[in-house]
Every structure is written in structure tokens, then in C-alpha cells.
Amino acid sequence: MIKTRLRYCVFDPDRRGNPRYYVRKPGSKKIRIREAFEDREGNIRPEFMKAYFAALESLSGIPRPLQPPPREKTFDWLVDQYYKSSRFKGFDPATQADKRSVLNRFCETAGNLPYALFRTKDVEASQDKRRATPAAADKLVKYLRALFAWAIKSGHAKSNPAVGVEKIHETVGWHTWSLAEIAVYRQHHEVGTKARLALEIFLNVGARISDVARIGRQHEVDGRLRFVAWKGRGKKKTRRTIDIPISADLAVSVAATSTGDLTYLVAESGQPFTINGLGNKMRDWCDAAGLHHCSAHGLRKASAVAMAESGVTAPELCAVFGWGKLETAEIYIREANATRMSANAFARLEEYRNRKSISPSVTKTKSETIRKKNRD
């Protein structure tokens, strides 16, 4: 073997004189370089040097840096395309801002990675890394699932690695207002106040807070309220028109309260509430009544429970609350039926106990009467 001008590189031709080059370090096995050493002018070929440095890195135990993928194959590019899509632009500004916040933070560490190589185990690892904030971890999975669903439809991806990833945040759901809590709120906030009007809209319309912030006199049609639900309005498939009668309680409250021109509820500035602003104000009104565990969404649930307990059918519930699936309505109906059946069961048990507690009267049987007459 003959040493070359390159450190650890040796020339070791075979028995026929054909050139062979190796990189050899003491205590390590040698690595052959199969690229040609020189060109016709006697210059060392770049391909040879590339293989030479790769062999050195391999023998030193230092991993060779990977060539970064083209930008159009990275998460940074995919997320940028998503933001420019009509799908993303169809979301309301609050939803857009929330998605941007979550996906931008994800791209701070994963933005230069190739999204096509992302697998379910990678999604689960990203979720687990955020386990200290489980709700945020699950939201990331939800938004990645939506991102890849759009990417598949747009031809940028072939599979969705976020599908099938289970939640790690167990939610107990919003507290459903009881009749007693509704009475407490009404007693504290009298008819004529914005706080009382808000409750009557939530309770008698069963609307989401995104709709309550927008509902106003322009939606009144022949004694009814008719409006397009804010959620899902961007697509024909999910667009829901709500058309319900104005209840007596709501009519009284609207007539007694100073309202805005376009919306029933307005802020101190006279402008309509934003969705977040109304949510914060409702929080203040509940706290003022001592109902710290109650919320605006809990009133929507209370309205659904009351209708289900009154015998309203699943399609009727969907028409009122704008649900697209009967399964959602059937949840409330099953709960109402369970409550009704348990009440019936205990009523029957109490009736049975009352019958058992009554002492049977001692009466003479027919045979005893006949025997007495015979003796006489």
C-alpha cells in the first residue's frame, strides 16, 4: 500500500495493477473508494473527494449531515400553501388566527422536515411532547389532520398520518345549567338588562355564542327568527339555516331592552359584541350571579336537554340546534329517556313499598260463613 497526499487514504492496486483506493485509520476497518481518483489532466475528481470525506466521517463516528429537502417538500411549504387555499380562507378570522398560531409553532421545529415522510408515530410523538398541556396537544393533532386532509384533496399528499391518533385530553364537557341555576340568574339580572336578554337568547334560541353575537331584528320574520348558523356556513354541505318561533320570554326581554340596530346585544361602545367579547361578558354576568361554574355553552345544552325531556324527536332537535348528524341529537334523547326511565322505576318501587306496608284486613271467607250457618 502506498500513502497518497490525502491523510488516511492509501493506494493499493490489485494483482493485475488496477488502481484501488482505501481510507484506513488505525483500529478501524478500511473503506474502499470506488470513484476514480484523477481526471485526464491529473486533477483529483470531486466525486472522489466527496466519497473520501464521507468515509472519514463514517470512521470517526460523526454522522454525515443530510442534504436538506427542497422547500416544496417541507412542512413550511405545505403550510404556506394551506394558508393560501380557499379552504383556509373560508374559515372565520378567529379560526384562521388559531390555526396559524398552532401550525406556526409546529413549524418552528418541524418546518424544514419533509412532510411526506411524516408517519402516525411522528404525530403521536409530537402530541406526547406537549403532554403537559393536553388540550393543546390534541388541538395540534386535530389541525394536522385537517392540514393533511386538505393536502390529499389537493394532490400534495397520499396519506393522512394524523388519522386514528387518539386524544390524551379527557374532557368532562360544559356544565349544563339546572332549572335552579337559571332561576338564580334571572333573579339577579332583571328583564330589561343586557345580561337577562343574553340568557333568554341562549336559552330560547339554543344558539351558539357565534350566532348570539350576530342575531338581531333583521332576522325577525313573521314572529320567527331566521338566520344562517355561523358554524359551517362556508360550505353548502354544512350550511344550516335556523328558523324558529320567537318565544314569549324572549319577546318580552327584547321589547324591554335597549338593543342595537343590527344585533340585539351590543357592547358599551354601542357596537356589536365580538364572539370572544360576548363570551367574556357572559362570564362576568354569570360570576355576578354567583354562578362561577356556568357558561354560555351550558345554556345551549340546557335548552337541548329541556326539549329532549319534553319528547322532541331527533330530527326536530337537529332543525333547532343546527346539528348535521342525528347521532348528536340522539345523545340528548337517550339521556332524557334514561332520566325518565329511572324516575319511573323508582316511582314503581315506591308504589310497591306502599302496597306492602298496608296491613291486609281480616275478612271471613265464604267457606267460613257457610260452616257458621250450618252450625246454627
Rank of each mutant, 00 (worst) to 15 (best):
G173D: 02
G173S: 07
L179F: 14
A207D: 03
A251K: 14
T171H: 02
H169D: 12
T193H: 01
G155N: 05
W174T: 01
T259W: 02
I168H: 09
I244T: 01
V266N: 05
P161L: 02
S210Q: 13
A183H: 13
A207S: 04
T176R: 03
K153V: 14
G192K: 01
I201Y: 10
V205W: 05
L265T: 03
T259N: 01
L197K: 00
V172Y: 15
G206Q: 02
L225E: 00
L197D: 03
T171N: 10
F227G: 07
W230I: 04
R196A: 02
K236F: 15
V212H: 04
T238K: 12
E166A: 13
L199Q: 06
H175V: 10
L265I: 02
S269E: 14
H175R: 13
Q218H: 11
E190Y: 13
A180S: 11
V184R: 14
E200K: 08
A255Y: 08
A213V: 03
E220W: 14
I209F: 08
E200T: 00
D211P: 11
H219Q: 13
A149V: 06
L203F: 12
L203A: 00
Q187W: 11
L199A: 09
G260C: 00
W174F: 15
L250F: 03
I152F: 10
G173Q: 06
E268F: 15
L203S: 03
V228Q: 14
E200W: 02
T263A: 09
G164Q: 12
K194F: 09
I168A: 00
A267K: 10
N204C: 03
A151W: 06
W174R: 11
G173E: 08
L250V: 03
V184L: 13
R196P: 00
L203R: 04
E181C: 04
A195W: 03
S253R: 01
W150Y: 06
V254I: 15
H175P: 04
D261W: 15
G260V: 00
T193N: 02
S247Y: 07
F227L: 08
L250Y: 03
V205K: 02
A251V: 11
Y185M: 09
N160G: 08
